[in-house]
Each structure stands twice: as C-alpha cells, then as structure tokens.
Write a protein that binds this DNA or RNA. Structure first.
Lengths: 106, 106
DNA sequence: TTAGTTCATCGTAAATATACGATAAGAAAT
DNA sequence: ATTTCTTATCGTATATTTACGATGAACTAA
C-alpha cells in the first residue's frame, strides 16, 4: 500500500482494535480482569482450545500491550495492563466522540 | 474451532473491533463524520488507494453496521450509523469497565 | 442509442491469521 | 541425572484479509 499519512492515534487504535477482534481474546481479557485477576494458564482449563493456540492469543494481547506477563517458574502470570487499557479506552473514546457528528447530519 | 460459548456481546464486540482494525477504515469513519458529514466517493480523491479497494473497506464498515449507504444515482451517499456507533461505544465501554479490575490487582 | 459517470463485484496474488500437534526451553522435584 | 510440569515456539494446513486492475451494472446526459 502507498504511504498513506495516518496519525499515530489512528495507527494505535487500529492496532488495539485488531487485538480485540477475536472473541477469545476478549474472553481472556475478562478472565484476567475477573476474580482471578492475575492469572496463569488455567485458561487452558477454561477455554476449549489447544494450549498452543491460547499461547498464541496471549502473545497477540501482549504485543498490543493490553496484558503483561511475569515469569514465575515454571508458570507465567498474566495480568491486565491497566494503564494501556485506559489509554485504549481514551483512543476509542475520542474516536466515538469525533464520529458523533456534531452537524445536522443526513 | 470448537463450539466455544461466547456471549452475544463478546461476538459483537469482536466484530466491531475487526471493522476498526485497519487505519484506513478509521480514517474513513472520521471523514464521514467530519465536515462533509454525509459523503460519497470523494474518498477516492482523499485516500491514495484504488477505488475498488476503498469500496471494499466501505463494505466492511457497512457489514459491521457502522455506516449506511443511500443510493443517489449515479452516486452513493455514505454516512455514519450513529445509533450503531453509540452501541459500539457502550460495548467497548463495558469491556473497559470490566477490565478495570476492581480488586487489589497484582 | 450512445457515451459518460459512479460504484460494486470479479479474479487474482501476496500477506496475515487461525488452529492444531509436536517439540523445545526452563525450572522444580525426585 | 532424570523426570515432571508449564509455557513458548515450530511446522503446517486452511481460511481470511488486503491490495490491484478489469469488468459489469445502473443511472444521466447528449
């Protein structure tokens, strides 16, 4: 694709949206935020998917910055990156504000 | 994939997120919401992409319900579906609320 | 009718995403 | 040292996404 000038916010927003674009990743975020808060791989017990697949989805969330992992051998604790989450909230918020269309619309 | 029990909200959220997962679609939403509000294919002039590609992205936004199209031959007017947009805002809102992690987190 | 304009769709190529099983890496326990 | 447990990564197959040019459909204007 040609060099289209997207703003940093637009790129970021698309990136986060992509991370949220699969239901299992939303589920994982909720699970991590829920009762168990910080979490490991009990996910494997809760989500009917191969362990490798879940690991892949965790990686996607990690790369989007929405979660954090802490090595706690031999396990790994995952938890929500709340700061990043708040940032995402603001990104989406301003998009929704902007698209709320002040003018007398169609 | 096996039949994972996602809630309707989770499915919807993932669907909308997917629609927002490409920067050009975010750009298009903003353009539609902006000065021109209701819009046609001046997009082709503003966005350096093939007309067919833009049409494809519009279709993605349409299918997610985020925009509407009205035939106005030989042009087509597109505009934001504000109701759907508000719904999306709420979907994201409750996700961000839920993931705000009430408990004393890690 | 003929030509022109606007937009969607088709066909296609390349890249990315999604799932799985198998394997590897790392630390703990025996 | 070997085994066990947890998790990541590899290899792979299939599906989806993304981009383009070319073509088609629909309406307008001449």
């Amino acid at each position: 694709m040609a060099a289209v000038p997207y703003s940093k916010e637009e790129e970021e927003l698309a990136l986060v949206a992509k991370a949220l674009s699969h239901p299992v990743r939303i589920k994982i975020l909720k699970l991590l935020a829920g009762e168990s808060c910080c979490f490991t791989g009990e996910l494997t017990g809760v989500i009917p998917m191969a362990q490798s697949t879940i690991s892949q989805h965790l990686k996607a969330l990690l790369e989007a910055g929405l979660i954090q992992g802490a090595i706690n051998p031999p396990k790994v604790r995952y938890c929500i990156n709340r700061e990043r989450m708040r940032m995402a909230q603001e990104l989406f918020g301003s998009l929704f504000d902007e698209t709320q269309c002040r003018k007398s619309c169609c």
